[in-house]
Design a protein around this nucleic acid. Structure first.
Lengths: 180, 180
DNA sequence: CTCCGAAGTTTACAACGTAAACATACGGGA
DNA sequence: TCCCGTATGTTTACGTTGTAAACTTCGGAG
């Protein structure tokens, strides 16, 4: 029955996320199939190709990121909530480095369902809009870029500073945005 | 004579950069060897493995980036020079997307000669220090992160805005840094 | 019961990174 | 001059990958 189909499909996504834990190099279509206990060609019944599977994995990652941002946002108010979101974003990237990289760099956009990526963005945009109603577009872009930059530079080992430095940087930007 | 060695070594790097023009997917060790007109194993006489070759390519990229930043920095003074550097950084990423990605995400750090990556960073740090002597560390980090975030998000098709938006965002941050 | 479509398997191929063994040619000591 | 070690490259080989094609199997609709 159709349940089986969905079972394997989701099992593949789950196993892929699991394999991402051991570095992105271990993530091949075949290794995912092996982990799920099926033949190398079985995934093609559920995904167009490897990129499609990775896209589904990325979508899962975006959903998780959105949840993380929402929780963080609720921990404070006003500009401070912005800082909390930023720190949470960076922490997420550090906790799941391979997944984070996959979500952005590796998979081309066509493979990621649009709502997935957008819902995480919306959490940020909403908070920025509440804090700086005018210029909220530029401010949102700036926040995202700065946080994303910190996260990726850290993942790529280009910077080593810890969360105190992150907080300082984020507060600097937040101050500029909130005005004054 | 030793000239030949250096010739092939540099030819490989050159061909690799050339192949990067057609998307990073076309860049295999074998394809580079083919482009240079040698056998598939020849590169191993000059590079430990594929990552080492990519590291050399990345180093070349960093040198180019540093030059670009220096030229841009010379186009203005004070905070405006900061904005110029940022725009140049983003423009570089857009002009050579695959090379830029290679420089950061793909190659692990051990394969990149340290001075290569550092000299580009120094150009930014110097200007920030001249503009905001106190807090120059946090400010430099912030500038780099924001610019890098804009560049990578654009590369990954996560944002579509043009250079006017970039300029606005950069000016916002610069204002916060220069103080007041 | 029959038959069909969906789910999975087996087999096959080209391309990849790289290990190992071999060829070749050049420069310096005997 | 001869000779030999070292640097440079080639050939061959192996295991892994993504994926195309042809097959099996099987549960439900007619």
């Amino acid at each position: 029955m159709k349940n089986e189909r969905i079972d394997l499909r989701e099992a593949l996504i789950r196993e892929a996320i699991g394999l991402l834990g051991n570095g992105p190099a271990d993530l091949s279509l075949r290794s995912v199939a092996r982990a799920a206990g099926v033949s190398a060609m079985a995934p093609y019944r559920h995904f167009e190709d490897k990129a499609a599977l990775l896209g589904a994995v990325a979508a899962q990652g975006f959903a998780e990121l959105r949840d993380v941002l929402e929780v963080a946002d609720a921990r404070a108010e006003g500009g401070a909530a912005l800082v909390e979101q930023g720190l949470a974003y960076i922490a997420f990237a550090q906790r799941r480095p391979s997944l984070f990289r996959l979500m952005f760099a590796s998979v081309d956009l066509a493979c990621i369902p649009k709502p997935a990526g957008m819902s995480a963005y919306a959490v940020l945009a909403r908070r920025v809009a509440s804090v700086a109603p005018d210029s909220s577009e530029v401010s949102t872009l700036g926040c995202w870029a700065m946080v994303h930059g910190l996260a990726t530079l850290r993942l790529d080992r280009r910077i080593e500073a810890g969360s105190e430095a992150d907080r300082s940087v984020l507060m600097l930007l937040t101050a500029a945005i909130v005005g004054r």
